[in-house]
Design a protein around this nucleic acid. Structure first.
Lengths: 215, 215
DNA sequence: GAGAAGGTGTTCAATGTTGAACACTGATCG
DNA sequence: CGATCAGTGTTCAACATTGAACACCTTCTC
C-alpha cells in the first residue's frame, strides 16, 4: 500500500536536492517532521532508493568523496515523468487510504507546473463531490440497516470531506491568481540561513563534479 | 506501521464472529467496504491471523467440517485484553499516520465498555488540543521561514482537527447520555435479514460443536 | 593521546504485505 | 453426464518495511 507514498516522497525529495545521498535525504525529511506521516526509517529510504534505481527512475552513482565511498542519486527523465504521474494520482485519489499520499503530494507542490496543479485540484474536488453524493444516497436509503456507530462514522467522514473541499477551493483560487511559487518560478519566500537544505549545498556542488553528470 | 491496524481489525472482527475462519472474515470485511481503508487482501488476513495465534491472542482450531479441513479461530483471554490495549492506543493517538487506526477503532466501538470509551474519547480530545496549540505556536513564531505551501498544508491540518474535535465532543455527549449499544448491552438497531453476519450464524454453531470449546 | 561522544552513511535479518494461483465443492446447462 | 462457472478456503514466492547495528570519521575531554 505504502509503496506509492514512499516512491512519491523519495522521488520528489531527490528532485529537490539532487545529487544527494540517502543520509542527506533522511536528515532533510526528519527536519520536515515528515516522520509523523511517512516511512522515513533509514531502511525504507535506502531500499526505496534502490528500488527506484532498479526501475530506472533514479540513477545511482558510486562516488568516492575524499576517502569515503558514497551512493549518490540523481533523477532520470523517466523518473521525472513518473513523479508527475504519481503526483497526479495522489491528488486525484480520495479516500482514507490515500490521504497520506495526498499530503505528500501537497508537500511537494512546488515541483509541479501551474497548469497541472490546477487540473489535478479540480479533479480532486470533483472526486470528493462524487464520494459525498454516494455517501448521502447510502445514508438515506438503507436508513435502519446500518448500526448507529457506523452511521456516526460516516458523518465524521462527510465533515472531513467538507473541510477539505473548502480548503481545496481556496487553494485553487490562490493558484489561479498566481500565488505560490511553482515549478520554474522564482521562490517567493525567505529561505532561512539555517535551513538544512542549504547545508547540503556544498556537498551538492562537490557531488556534481564527482559524477560527470549534468541534468 | 500498518501492523497495528491489521491486528486491531482482525482481533476485533474475530471477537465479533468467533468461531470464524479466514474466508468468512474476508467476506465480512469486504461487505463493510473496509477495503477502502484497510489491508484486507487474503494474504494479509491469513498471515495476520497466524501471527495473532502465534502470539497467543487467538487460538487456531484445525477442524474437519464435513470432508473439508478448516482453520477456525477464537479469541483468548489475553487476546481480548490485547484488543482493549490496541483500541485505546488507536483512539488516543492523533496524527495523520494514526487516522486509519482511529477509524478502525471507531468501527469496532461496540466491543468496548462504556466507561473505557468515554475515557479514551476524552483523552483524544485533549491530544488534539495539544497538537493544535503546538501548530499555532509554530505558525506565529517562524512566520517567514516556512514556504507558503507548507503553511497552507498546516491550515488544512488545523481545519481537519477542528472538524474532528467537534464530532468527538458530540459523540462523547451521546455516549454519556447512554446512546449507542456498547459491550454487554442489547443491540438497539434493526439487523437486516441479509446481513452477511447472519449468514455466518449456521457455520458458527457448527464450529462451536466441532471444537470442544466454550468462551 | 586514550577514549568517550556524536555525526555520517549504510546494511541486513526479521517481519509484514501482496495478490495471483491453487485445490476443492457444488450448481447449472445443453 | 461432462463441461463450465461461481463460490469456498488457503498458500506462497516476491516484494516492502523495520530499526538495530555496523563501520568509520571528527571533536571534545581528561
Amino acid at each position: 500500500m505504502a509503496a506509492t507514498e514512499t516512491r512519491l516522497l523519495l522521488l520528489g525529495t531527490v528532485m529537490l536536492f539532487e545529487p544527494v545521498n540517502g543520509y542527506q535525504l533522511r536528515r532533510e525529511l526528519l527536519s520536515w517532521e515528515v516522520d509523523d506521516w511517512a516511512h522515513v526509517n533509514p531502511g525504507s529510504i535506502y531500499s526505496g532508493l534502490a528500488t527506484l534505481a532498479k526501475q530506472g527512475a533514479l540513477e545511482r552513482h558510486d562516488v568516492v568523496d575524499g576517502t569515503r565511498e558514497v551512493a549518490v542519486y540523481t533523477s532520470t527523465t523517466h523518473g521525472r515523468r513518473e513523479f508527475e504521474r504519481l503526483w497526479e494520482h495522489a491528488v486525484e485519489s480520495v479516500g482514507l487510504t490515500s490521504s497520506l499520499a495526498f499530503h505528500t503530494a501537497m508537500a511537494l507542490l512546488p515541483l509541479m507546473p501551474r497548469d497541472r496543479v490546477l487540473a489535478a485540484l479540480t479533479a480532486r474536488i470533483a472526486a470528493l463531490d462524487v464520494m459525498t453524493r454516494r455517501q448521502l444516497d447510502q445514508n438515506t436509503s438503507g436508513a435502519a440497516s446500518v448500526p448507529p456507530h457506523v452511521r456516526s462514522l460516516a458523518d465524521l467522514w462527510m465533515g472531513m470531506s467538507q473541510t477539505e473541499r473548502e480548503w481545496l477551493v481556496d487553494l485553487r483560487a490562490r493558484i489561479e491568481r498566481g500565488e505560490l511559487a511553482l515549478r520554474g518560478e522564482p521562490v517567493d519566500w525567505e529561505v532561512p540561513a539555517d535551513d538544512p537544505g542549504w547545508q547540503m549545498a556544498g556537498d551538492r556542488e562537490r557531488y556534481v563534479k564527482l559524477i560527470g553528470k549534468r541534468r
